[in-house]
Design a binder for these strands. Structure first.
Lengths: 340, 340
DNA sequence: TTGAAAGCGCTACCAT
DNA sequence: ATGGTAGCGCTTTCAA
């Protein structure tokens, strides 16, 4: 591995000049600049990051923090996709992405107890997923590093956040059931409102129902899995046996609901329509193929990267919430005819 | 952020003494050691990694490298789980895990063109997935960093590798069909043999068939997805209409096979038994619930971490292939009775 | 335009 | 047992 010093010696100039040339800084004659650049390429010079980090107090690293349980989440990997988009975009700008999965103990201990932060390993942070509690987030913010929330948000404190357009997506899914298929008794199966995505999706559902002059019926349960989807549908049908359509907070719940419906001899979509949310890879292969709302997870990661780059670049952006648009993917579980 | 110097000044000793004490090195009196340790805790001292890295030429970072397409793989995330296990284990030892997803261009350009390696960002590497070609691997090895292959291997050059016990798993799945269910016409649906996991699973199938004196029937196709599983089953039934059981190289293929079987009015498991491989999260919810072979992905990651720690610790282990055991998970698609 | 040199914070060698 | 100090490779200020 060649060093600045070696290049300098070879050229008979000082390391300062070489450094300036290689960092595209002023104060070097065009000829010398060229010579340095050429020799650097020739010698396969690459800066030693540790040295640069030490002297600049920056790391060129972004820390992707997620709850340990959630990283490779059940059924479909939400966060790996986001991390993927993040890495793809950031690696092009000279940044690396580090993964940090938090145990419950680490969440309790707070961000100050995280070695990666204590040792100043990162220039910026992404906190992903609703399982990171507000207290932890606030403490993290106080560290002063550029930070971004993804799929989570602070209710009261404005803070830069990237979210999918959950409300809009769920509204259009619900509207589809109402306007295209003429449903009136539409029940929402959802998870805890402390999860921002559940809350927003519920809001979208409510707003669509209200605009249509329909009465909302919401079944809430403590998780959003295939199993809880099954339980939620049973509750729903007990409370309102005349339910003709289901909006589920995610695809796993939707698929669970379909399974139970079948057991109860309600054929989907003939006797009951179902729409999900997320467009996980299995949605297309569900039986019947699931109508759902696509969340562009990789783009969420790319967008997070862009926002972070701005902030690290010194652009003081307002602590806004940025939304990535979602799109209804029509398949068969809503009652639409089979695609040819 | 406090520094060694500050602690030293406070105690009226030299940084050398403080450094020794904090690094648990000999040459410090017990009393002084305690004083240093106490003050360090009190001052919330944490070493600056960049400085340490510069002076030790180590980074405390492991690079997890995977093909860009494969990281959040379709259907079920294999590599995120492995990365998860790796991070979990490594973070306890003071290491961070960085993600690097390779584009095709980067693979073509070789490891020397990777900024993360040029800049010496990592102490060790994990190359995960069969999509990284031998040439790239060999070039990477030449870098001299401790490196581990996961779910991939070099055919000729011995090299430290972590793999699931694909052969054993597939053998026991096949034996189950033979010995418990009495099948004789068992067809294997598999992907390219250049993928080590496919090859090994095929070997397990062959060996079980041979031991039982049965004739192997293998349908090979260019990918191992739900779609190719569908195509493969059609081919299989065309070639051998009397097939009564299917061993699929993974769960996605198995589920695809089941779908086609149903279309052809072959009920699973009544008319045809099916077993898969991987035990993806959907396997339990397939219809019928899929009998498959569990691959403990998180443990693969943990094991990789352990091996890497050994190698980074200087233990020169032989370039052996380490296998993580797999286990047949019996559900219903093989013909076993419904669990109560 | 260029150079000299002072750090950045830590480790490790050589003295004492 | 402890201290002094020379790096590690780079950036950046101050002089020339």
């Amino acid at each position: 591995m060649s060093t600045l010093q070696e290049i300098a010696d070879n050229l008979g100039v000082s390391v300062a000049t070489v450094s300036r040339a290689l960092n595209d800084k002023p104060g070097v004659s065009p000829e010398m600049r060229q010579k340095v650049l050429n020799l650097a390429r020739e010698m396969q010079y690459h800066p030693n990051l540790a040295a640069r980090n030490l002297s600049t107090a920056r790391t060129n690293t972004v820390l992707f923090i997620v709850h340990r349980r959630q990283f490779p989440a059940a059924m479909d990997p939400f966060y790996p996709y986001i991390m993927h988009g993040l890495e793809e975009r950031l690696s092009g700008e000279g940044y690396s992405v580090m993964l940090l999965t938090l145990s419950d103990d680490q969440i309790d201990a707070g961000p100050n107890a995280l070695p990666a932060l204590q040792e100043q390993r990162a220039d910026a942070l992404v906190l992903a997923g609703p399982d990171i509690p507000p207290g932890f987030i606030l403490a993290t913010i106080n560290l002063g590093l550029p930070t971004l929330l993804v799929d989570n948000t602070l209710r009261e404190t404005p803070f830069p956040t990237v979210l999918a357009d959950n409300e809009g997506g769920c509204r259009s899914a619900t509207k589809h059931l109402i306007e295209v298929h003429g449903h009136k008794n539409i029940t929402l199966l959802t998870g805890p409102t402390k999860w921002i995505s559940c809350e927003e999706r519920a809001n979208g559902y409510k707003s669509a129902m209200k605009s249509a002059g329909l009465k909302a019926h919401i079944v809430q349960i403590d998780d959003t899995t295939l199993n809880t989807g099954q339980v939620a549908l049973q509750t729903a049908l007990k409370e309102r046996p005349d339910t003709t359509a289901i909006v589920a907070s995610n695809d796993a719940m939707a698929i669970g609901a379909i399974r139970v419906a079948r057991h109860l001899n309600r054929e989907v979509p003939r006797d009951m329509a179902v729409v999900g949310f997320d467009n996980i890879s299995w949605a297309a292969y569900a039986d019947p193929p699931l109508t759902t709302v696509r969340v562009p997870t990789i783009e969420v990661g790319r967008l997070a990267a862009r926002l972070l780059l701005e902030r690290m670049g010194g652009t003081i952006t307002a602590p806004t919430r940025t939304t990535v648009s979602t799109k209804l993917v029509i398949r068969e579980s809503c009652g639409c005819p089979v695609n040819i």
